[in-house]
Design a protein around this nucleic acid. Sequence first.
DNA 1: TGACAAGCATAGCAATGCAAGGCATAACAC
DNA 2: GTGTTATGCCTTGCATTGCTATGCTTGTCA
Lengths: 112, 112
Amino acid sequence: MLAKELVAASTVPLVLSVLTEGENYGYALIQRVRELSGGKIEWTEGMLYPVLHWMEKEDLIESEWHEAETGRKRKYYRLRKEGRKALQEEKQQWMSVHETLTKLWQPQPRLT
Amino acid sequence: MLAKELVAASTVPLVLSVLTEGENYGYALIQRVRELSGGKIEWTEGMLYPVLHWMEKEDLIESEWHEAETGRKRKYYRLRKEGRKALQEEKQQWMSVHETLTKLWQPQPRLT
DNA sequence: TGACAAGCATAGCAATGCAAGGCATAACAC
DNA sequence: GTGTTATGCCTTGCATTGCTATGCTTGTCA
């Protein structure tokens, strides 16, 4: 199981990124992320839904209720312009840290 | 400035990683990380020292006071075996998330 | 008919991040 | 000899927050 700090840091960028695949609903996001991570990232609904609400409040995403084929109602989320912008920013920040870490993970960090 | 979640998630792995370069002290760790990140990662002492104390309590690192060339006293930290193990674990977790994100960042994520 | 999966939601409080502040010494300018 | 900046360590305190636990509905299948 992943450290909670890492989960916290990756939730928003992951939601934004998954939504670039097309609109999707909460329950399916959890499964999509589990699938993409090979089971390593296990979100709970209790942590995801508040994040989705916050992201909507921030205009990163928007939602709409659809009736699924099954007759069941789902709340679909879609990326907004603000969200695409935020994703770019998140990518850059992530890569900054990633590059810093990988510099140190090279065989002989002293020589860099 | 980086999002605070990302800072939180990267602090311990960064400290562990920098210490693989050799023992070092708190104040210098802040500068080393600033340097390695090209100024993107700006730690404050108020957040770092408690983390160092926690890491020492967890036996990830150990400390010793040395007199610097300047005559000033510094508390040097060194990696312990537990810390090296923790670093391996942190690396794996980081890479899990990184790989998940980069899958989604490819030009046509639908096709993966 | 009852158990499970799908689906969304939030109250509540334990845990904690870190800004702010404190202390001390070296170095340097004037 | 004094004012300032950089170096260097430390902790308190409380606002913020993460997320567990819980609750509800509906579809499906045995």
